[in-house]
């Protein structure tokens, strides 16, 4: 009797597990479809019904990296010319009949995204670690109010800050500069980072620091040699969260940058090729842009809940 019961339970278990796997797959279909689109040959993309199995090509990735023109009808390249083309030129010509003119805007935009994100994360983490340590270890008058003030800045709808920031930046000639976006993203991540890091530092026993101070360490030495190394996991997790936020930010970048400091999110949705909207290239660009955040998410697994609740839930 017991054995039968057990088997029934385990069959139920297996069914639920299969169900979970199926749901996960279905849930990720939109993303899989984009990866799939980014590998579709030019003449397959617009097929109806949509093809799932086809010979994949990396031509969309070449297209998102390059600027191209269409060969005029009376000036198609000859066989000999095609033979002399580099592989990516040949591939692009065969796919969409286009000629590669130069490297496109993607590398520049990607670099902008990287510079702005990394610089703002570094600045955020340095400032926030100091501030979090201060809030964690010192007696401060009105500490709770200050902490709440810091949190509340994050809750503001960006749109309401956007108008005055736009005017300020115009006045200070910060529109379309890297430094402008770096400062903005730092300010927006700071509140989050201070809260989460304070939680991590609160968990470090204060006795080590007291012992070190008795041994003649200064506050800075204590901070650098004892607190920072022990808080490193927390600092890394916080940095990853800040990275993801800054990397993904759209509204500010969209309004405050035009070309020089434009980041990928502000640029990618508006890419019209000479042949109309190039869906394959847009999909390829999306995939390339999403990858860094996806990789970082995997590192975050254990601290995800803590991060999304501003450190309120420590699991």
């Amino acid at each position: 009797m017991a054995a039968v019961n057990k088997r029934r339970v385990s069959i139920g278990r297996i069914i639920v597990i299969i169900l979970i796997c199926v749901i996960t797959f279905v849930y990720l279909v939109p993303f899989l479809f984009v990866i799939d689109t980014s590998l579709k040959p030019w003449n397959v993309i617009k097929d109806w019904p949509p093809k799932i199995i086809f010979k994949p090509t990396i031509a969309p990735y070449i297209r998102i990296f390059t600027a191209r023109t269409v060969y005029p009808a009376n000036n198609k390249p000859t066989e000999a010319e095609i033979a002399k083309m580099k592989w990516y030129e040949k591939l692009t010509y065969k796919e969409s009949g286009e000629q590669i003119v130069r490297v496109g805007d993607l590398p520049k935009r990607y670099l902008n995204s990287l510079i702005i994100t990394l610089a703002s994360v570094a600045l955020t983490i340095i400032m926030a670690t100091f501030a979090a340590y201060g809030f964690s270890r010192f007696k401060i008058r009105g500490k709770d109010d200050l902490m709440f003030f810091i949190l509340s800045t994050r809750m503001l709808p960006p749109v309401i800050v956007l108008i005055p920031v736009f005017l300020m930046f115009r006045k200070l000639a910060l529109t379309d500069t890297h430094i402008g976006l770096i400062l903005l993203y730092t300010a927006f991540n700071l509140s989050f980072a201070v809260w989460v890091l304070k939680g991590f530092i609160d968990e470090i026993p204060i006795e080590y620091e007291e012992a070190a101070m008795v041994d003649g360490y200064t506050r800075f030495q204590v901070f650098r040699k004892i607190v920072v190394p022990q808080a490193m996991t927390g600092i890394a997790a916080t940095a990853v969260f800040c990275f993801i936020f800054a990397w993904n930010e759209y509204a500010f970048a969209f309004i405050l940058t035009k070309s020089i400091a434009q980041t990928v999110p502000a640029w990618l949705p508006y890419q019209m090729g000479v042949l109309g909207y190039d869906w394959g290239a847009a999909a390829a660009g999306s995939v390339l842009f999403i990858i860094p955040a996806l990789i970082f998410t995997i590192f975050l697994r254990k601290n995800l809940v803590r991060g999304i609740t501003f450190g309120a839930i420590r699991k």
Binding site: I20, C21, T24, Y27, L28, P30, F31, F33, V34, T37, I244, W247, N248, E249, Y250, F254, P265, L268, P269, W279, A282, A283, S286, F289, I290, A293, L294, F296, T297, I298, R301, L304
Partner: peptide, 23 residues
């Protein structure tokens, strides 16, 4: 499975919009 399900959350919202536009 949990990590896979969490992935959409860490994507850029505007790019998610773009992806769904394709979809």
């Amino acid at each position: 499975i949990t990590t896979l399900l969490v992935l959409p959350m860490t994507m850029s919202p505007v790019i998610v919009g773009l992806m769904w536009k394709l979809f």
